[in-house]
């Protein structure tokens, strides 16, 4: 599978296992320290590490075969839909007591993510190869999911704390759309803050994944930075679409058809 971006790695995979072993020892020492200091995260940390490691290797195995597979673009569509579904369900858990929130998170993530991937593809930034499509899709959907969670979490909390105010507005003749407008705007803004902050610190304290990968693979730093900016702009654009969409769709779940605040709030 020549041309993989991992050609920059300076050791064979057997040597890699040894290095990993050394890291494990260091980690065990670190976890030992945390047990000694009674920080109380050792168990969860170990679980997360094992789970994350297994997931990563499973994904890598899948990718290995996918990269070799001539008709890779058939399964990849399933992969993208699976990402959106996973993201939708994960994000829905951040929606407080909102019932059936996945019905609004999944389409929002799917649409925001897909729009970005299409633009990346059409503009030529993303060659139609699994080595590009899969990691980029991961970044795009991952960010869309985070933003979706943040926006929805904030909005449901605003509703729970400001129910009397919302009801006062409705009572004075506001439509649900008018009553929730300000809270929707606040939620979208809050959800985008982490993205904006990482944009601001780009290159200073934060070398994002794609650029790190390119640098390790030996790409010219200027080109790597340019590519990173393109990717970043697209990812943020997708996040904005997702957040606007999830807030707009949430109206149906927050209010009844008779323009009352839903009972679950």
């Amino acid at each position: 599978m020549g041309g993989s971006i991992l050609t920059g790695i300076p050791y064979t995979w057997e040597e890699g296992l040894v290095i990993m072993g050394i890291m494990m020892v260091m980690l065990v020492i670190a976890i030992g320290l945390s047990v000694w200091k009674k920080i109380g995260i050792a168990r969860e940390y170990t679980y997360a590490l094992i789970r994350g490691g297994l997931q990563l290797f499973a994904a890598a195995t899948l990718l290995y075969f996918l990269f070799e597979f001539e008709y890779w673009y058939y399964p990849i569509w399933l992969f993208l839909i699976a990402m959106a579904l996973m993201g939708g369900y994960t994000s829905a858990r951040r929606a407080g007591k909102m019932p059936k929130a996945y019905r609004i998170t999944t389409p929002s993530i799917l649409v925001g993510g897909t729009v970005v991937l299409v633009v990346l593809r059409v503009s030529g930034a993303m060659p139609y190869k699994p080595q590009f499509v899969i990691p980029l899709a991961g970044m795009v959907f991952g960010n869309a999911m985070t933003i979706c969670s943040l926006a929805l979490n904030r909005l449901t909390r605003e509703f729970e704390t400001n129910k009397p105010t919302l009801e006062t507005m409705l009572s004075l003749g506001a439509t649900p759309k008018e009553a929730m407008e300000e809270y929707g705007r606040m939620s979208i803004k809050a959800a985008l803050i982490p993205n904006i902050d990482s944009l601001k610190t780009l290159g200073i304290i934060f070398i994002p994944g794609a650029m790190a990968g390119l640098l390790i693979a030996g790409t010219n730093p200027i080109l790597a930075a340019e590519y990173q900016i393109i990717v970043y702009l697209m990812i943020i654009g997708g996040g904005i679409i997702t957040s606007i969409m999830v807030i707009a769709l949430s109206r149906r779940l927050l209010f009844t058809r008779a323009q009352q605040i839903a009972e679950w709030v």
Binding site: E167, G173, A258, Q259, Q260
Partner: peptide, 15 residues
């Protein structure tokens, strides 16, 4: 239409 009703039958709530 609820909005129409609420503009004619107007509530001054307890709180």
């Amino acid at each position: 239409d609820p909005v129409d009703l609420r503009r004619k039958v107007v509530l001054v709530p307890q709180e």
